[in-house]
């Protein structure tokens, strides 16, 4: 139980879970939210960014997928730079310490209760911060409804808008960066009431090979 980080190194061991992830993405973003551009006849939402450099974070309870999110490095094409550049009025935030957070979704049963941040949502966010603190990543790019901004600020993310909120259908969307540090993690854990790490499994990276 917890968040499993899946990259090119270990995706082979997560074939079944990734299948659930692509289906959850389709169910949430296409069927529920109506992003029809992403519709696919096989019910699996996969796009051009699901390549070897994407990092998938899977919230698994046993074999069952509860939540999902994807991290993309800002050094390569990502949604803000390639799909929604109009949301960014200044320079694109780019660097090894900046990644983009996309495709956050949670199964219906594990959604926010009474509009509070759900434990599943908290765990997924906590996983980003834990992973970031361990790997020298300190900032994430988010495209979101501006209504979530206050919540991120209250979680001790330092949120900076990249543009002014714009209309997208009947909702608004804004691009921001959210910087975090150890205080953010402490805050997330205290809100969750649990000091244990959110990340259960992550690919073993041979640092000697990397270096």
């Amino acid at each position: 139980m917890g968040i499993h980080i899946v990259s090119a190194e270990n995706i082979g061991s997560y074939a079944e879970a990734m299948e659930q992830a692509y289906r959850l993405r389709h169910a949430v973003f296409v069927d529920e939210m109506g992003w029809n551009d992403l519709r696919r006849s096989d019910g699996r939402e996969i796009d051009q960014f699901d390549d070897g450099r994407a990092l998938h974070m899977l919230y698994l309870e046993g074999d069952r997928l509860v939540g999902y999110q994807r991290m993309l490095p800002s050094m390569r094409p990502h949604l803000l730079s390639a799909v929604m550049p109009h949301l960014c009025d200044g320079d694109f935030p780019v660097g090894p310490h900046i990644w983009e957070w996309t495709r956050y979704c949670v199964t219906k049963e594990h959604r926010d209760r009474g509009r509070m941040l759900s434990p599943a949502g908290n765990l997924l966010l906590s996983a980003i911060v834990e992973w970031g603190l361990e790997n020298g990543i300190s900032k994430i790019i988010i495209e979101m409804n501006p209504i979530w901004l206050l919540r991120l600020v209250q979680l001790h993310f330092r949120v900076t808008p990249l543009g002014i909120p714009q209309e997208a259908g009947k909702d608004s969307i804004v691009a921001v960066t959210a910087a975090f540090d150890a205080r953010t993690l402490a805050r997330l854990r205290s809100v969750r009431g649990d000091n244990r790490p959110a990340i259960a499994e992550q690919p073993v990276i041979d640092r000697r090979v990397r270096a």
Binding site: G114, R115, P146, L149, R151, I164, V174
Partner: peptide, 30 residues
Amino acid sequence: MLTLDGQSAGFSIASDRAELPPNYRGRLQL
């Protein structure tokens, strides 16, 4: 607005007479 605890919150500005250019809504939201 929506707080971390899931409570609704509101932010209002007002007067007897004012105007708001449509493109300022997003700025005021931030």
